[in-house]
Design a protein around this nucleic acid. Sequence first.
RNA 1: GGUCCAGUGGCGGAAUUGGUAUACGCGCAACACUUAAAAUGUUGUGUCCAAAAGGCAUGUGGGUUCAACUCCCACCUGGACCACCA
Length: 819
Amino acid sequence: MKSYDPNKIEAKWQKKWLELGIYKNYNKDKKFYVLDMFPYPSGAGLHVGHPRGYIATDIISRYKLLQGFSVLHPIGWDAFGLPAENYAIKNKIHPKIAVEKNIITFKKQLKKFGFTYDWDKEINTTDPEYYKWTQWIFLKMFEKGLAYESNEPVNWCPNCKTVLANEDLEKGLCERCKTQVIQKKMRQWVLKMTNYADRLLYDLNLKELNWENSIIEQQKNWIGKSEGVQFEIKIKNSLEKIEVYTTRIDTVYGMTYAVIAPEHPIIEKIKKGIKNYSEVEKYLIQAQKKTEFERTELQKEKTGIELKGIKAINPFTEKEIPLFVADYVLGFYGTGAIMAVPSHDERDFEFAKKYNLPIKHVILMENPCDSENLVDWKQELIDKKHWWWKHDYCYTKDGMLFNSKLYSHFSSEQARDKITEWLEKKGIGKRKINYKMRDWVFSRQRYWGEPIPIIHCEKCEAVAVPENQLPVKLPEIKHYEPTGTGEGPLATIHDWVNTKCPKCNKPAKRETNTMPQWAGSSWYYLRYIDSKNNKSLIDKKLEKKWMPVDLYIGGAEHATRHLLYARFWHKFLYDISVVSTIEPFKKFMYVGLILAKDGQKMSKRWNNVINPDDVINQFGADSTRLYEMFMGPFMQAISWSVDGIKGTRRFLDRIWKLQKNLIKTEEKSTEILMHKTIKGVTEDIEQFKFNTAISTMMIFINKAEKNGTTIANYESLLKILSPFAPHITEEIWEKLGHKKSIFLSTWPKYNVELIKDDKINLVIQINGKVRDIVIVNADILEKDAKKIAMKSEKIKTYITNKEIKKTIFVPKKLINIVI
RNA sequence: GGUCCAGUGGCGGAAUUGGUAUACGCGCAACACUUAAAAUGUUGUGUCCAAAAGGCAUGUGGGUUCAACUCCCACCUGGACCACCA
């Protein structure tokens, strides 16, 4: 027998599988759609971390295939966007050429793993035939009023020279280049994602949605629903009023001042009444210059300025309170104005301390109604039990109201209801729901993206490009560097920009901004299903057949961006009847990062990148696949180690050698172990516990190597190993005389009767400590177990002359004697 | 600062409706094979003790229990996400 030579057999089977197309049986009764987050073909190529998720989906694909499913397992390229463009600029290659080159590298690398991808379904977001439909979705949104032009201040990255969405920021820095982002008023396209906020939140609770909890929590936090009250505060001697938003209306009697954001429009209206306007103006200019990062830096002291000569009226007490402008109030959230309650809000507290503003307590830490001295409540009890209330102390939790006129004695919860009712009755306030999530800023002033299919006409304003003119192709261009003017580089191509208005036929200009990187990936899972369709986005029958995606695997870092955007688009497509499911991804699993040996992220910068090609050349694809799954729990980040992979290679060597150790009749225990192994591996795959699935098979080979095993068991072993190590198992399968691929066979079943243990190790404990272990029948009764325990020599030494208080018997497990 | 998750041998890790802690792999040591090495195989490998018997060990300190890696409380350390969202 020749020794195991992975390089030879892997190339052979990769070629054969492609020729035979064994994965492409799409007509079975049961379907399974398994999806990888498609890669971004960067210039660096793949490192060993990328394939971890792909290996898992490949294991699931082959496993489902063996269980008789039609499996859709596609791959494609998410190739628009800043990294590709920056790489191209740096290396002075056109992004299109760079992307094409990178895709070739990526493909070559991926193919070495022997994945089940159906390459006929390959897609590329930069292909006009693909982005035609990305543009089409945008136009549908435009048609429904969900895509609109806005002039609000937006995040501008001075380095990338483009606007960014909220989701593209990392602590106020540009997620790509870590430059501080500034706020800039610019015309831009925005998608009304907030219209879907409630559904995006609510549907996360669907039973059918089987997502990792931490991802669901992250999305919920990002959407950030808060239920509160919005009410108006009058300005003294003026018809103007400001609307404030609060979730703690129960603390309203503690309001000692009010604050508006620097960008609040009322400042302009009451300008004349502000006595210190020149100083206020200075502050406004200063605040505007601050980056969002500085503004939200928590450690930074709060700043603000009082609008002298202006007084606000607390509608509850009718008392005058000062009004401040301060940039700790955010213009974009709620109403851009707040009631300030320093006694029960930490930010207001900090501000009040700095500017010496009164602090009035209205919430008690605990409910004195619970105490017996209900009658004596009021001052005495407060003084005694709640010494803090006169002092500088900020209590932010719910409690019981006092100092709140007729609402005193109420709990925070009751008070919120009652006070809101009062506001509603008076017509000066109402319940209001706010979200942290903002609308999606959708235009980029860059070249390498889908052109936004809009034509600007002086008379007709923004007009949709007619559907039959899609795609609006991205024109060839000499200089694709960003301009920094707010227009995209496309603005320089006059032939392209100047066109006619589709409505009135007069001269008009094309939109020169492009779509963000996340556009193409927001619906790509649909295109795989019907990748060649040029009449519609997707055929209805095919959509019904394959959707939803049964399993989606990718990085956890996409929890609040890609996954949110894709769900948003999917719900829109549902509303316009393009898709039939309300959620796109039934199950989502995230894959843990593979770190370099030093515990850092793999990056060219640290010079610690491991290229999978090298690993495969040395150990083979099967060993590499096996090791990436064996190294630790799937969702956990883990460091790469060369030593570990030696172990999985040895394991495959032993699988190979077992061919010559096949026997006619084997010990019963080997057969039983085989069935236990099948059970273990099946259950572990279902639960994504690939590491223990592999160790289960290792346990079997340890025994089979010693005692020998039958060909029937060996074939079962090959089958359950085949999703993990497809090449070696296929090769041995062929050597054993099979004419058809192992992946056209069926997943082995285990015999439930056989794996029932009739003998067990009964643990005998004294006071919970293991003192002896005896082999007994599995169905042993308590009284018999006790007898056996008492007979044990080891136990005797412990119980002689001791009183036995009680014994605890756990069937099939142990007996514990308490003395 | 908030939320969530984690902490087990020399290393990666296994075990949770509470019931034999350290499976499996790596590494290490001894032996076999070899002129030798690599590869392979066999045996051993938590810690204390020369060994046995036994004691002690799942970040730290408490608690619940016949029994705690698993549940509860407090703390320490590390990671992820969010971060003035009223």
